[in-house]
Design a protein around this nucleic acid. Structure first.
Length: 323
DNA sequence: AAGGAGATCAACCGCCGTATT
DNA sequence: AAATACGGCGGTTGATCTCCT
């Protein structure tokens, strides 16, 4: 009954940090044979490790397509936005950050971003200004609370959509394996995602931006979030009145948090002489870039993001601080 | 220079959903 | 249908590094 017995509990397996020799063995084996079944890999590669440990070492460290080092501002923004949408679903967030591992993103969130948001008076879990923060937080508008009330619903909506995307992708892959490949699709028709609210032209942007099609499609919701920033900004300023539009409310919360947090932080910084000028400049640049994204999408369209807006690389660059 | 505190991050642990027998 | 393995995920830990006193 069942599969062959697992030998994972086998005694004498090594734990702890990997040595360069072990890395070399694992790399050499995978380069030559691929990883195949992780369970049987250690024995074949001559490693006294469990398969799980090998898989982890490969996916988090040895894989050649891993980018290491400091996170860029754009990456930070993406993480914050996606965390607001998806919560602690690090693997889902990692699919939108090419070459970053879920473990790295999780670590970065826990050691940097979470603290930074908390310091700014934003609850890193709800992405709302903390009730006990006072100041700008206490002065939150009715719209902010209205937005908060919809947060859960919106996140669930987006989460369900992402799951549907994944399911459809799996099914498509299975179909592709079972039948000969279709002729190349026309450049811009008939490829709309059945679940995404993103137009093909928007999805295609990623595919044409140096990523493969699958990755481009996977990143599409990130664009959705950026567009939502624009929608929310319009909503907050009476540009639109579609209160039930998915994404808009959530983005409203984020934008509101960003502004309130920045205001509060700057006020605190002014009062507290211990906060250095450099830190203030960093914060200004950080939050103004978020606002810049909003403005970029606003200027191209008040209700939706055009392809021109997204293809403009300047949209992802830090804006000059104009506080 | 030394020691303590805090920050960082690689790796482990335990759980869960899916695949396999 | 049930039992079991496998792969993946998120939470947590602990060794190491860096900064501060």
């Amino acid at each position: 009954m069942g599969r062959t017995p697992c030998c994972e509990k086998e005694a004498g397996l090594k734990k702890g940090p990997w040595t360069p020799e072990e890395d070399q063995k694992l790399l050499a084996f995978i380069e030559q044979h691929g990883h195949g079944c992780w369970r049987s890999l250690p024995a074949k590669a001559g490693l006294r490790r469990c398969g799980k440990s090998c898989r982890l070492r490969w996916t988090n460290y040895l894989r050649p397509d891993i980018k290491r080092g400091k996170f860029t501002l754009q990456e930070e923004q993406t993480i914050i936005q996606l965390h607001a949408l998806l919560g602690n679903r690090w693997s889902a967030i990692a699919t939108h950050l090419p070459k970053r591992t879920d473990n790295e993103i999780k670590n970065y969130w826990n050691t940097h971003l979470k603290k930074r948001l908390a310091k700014m008076g934003i609850d890193p879990v709800t992405h709302k200004p903390r009730a006990d923060a006072g100041g700008a937080g206490a002065a939150a508008s009715g719209a902010r609370y209205r937005a908060a009330a919809h947060l859960s619903h919106t996140a669930q909506w987006e989460s369900a959509r992402l799951e549907a995307e994944a399911r459809l992708a799996r099914e498509a892959k299975l179909r592709a394996l079972a039948s000969p490949p279709p002729p190349p699709a026309p450049a811009a028709s008939g490829l709309e995602s059945p679940t995404s609210t993103l137009s093909f032209s928007e999805s295609a942007l990623f595919a044409g931006a140096g990523h493969d099609d699958a990755l481009g499609a996977a990143r599409a919701p990130a664009v959705l979030t950026l567009r939502s920033y624009g929608e929310a900004f319009g909503e907050q300023h009476n540009f639109g009145d579609d209160a039930d539009a998915p994404g808009g409310f959530l983005a409203g919360v984020l934008l509101d948090c960003a502004v309130a947090g920045a205001e509060q932080r700057f006020a605190a910084a002014s009062a507290d002489a211990s906060v250095g000028e450099q830190q203030q400049e960093e914060d200004k640049g950080y939050w103004s870039s978020i606002l810049n994204m909003v403005n970029s999408s606003m200027s191209s369209s008040s209700s939706s993001l055009t392809s021109e807006a997204v293809t403009d690389p300047a949209m992802y660059l830090p804006a000059a601080a104009e506080f």
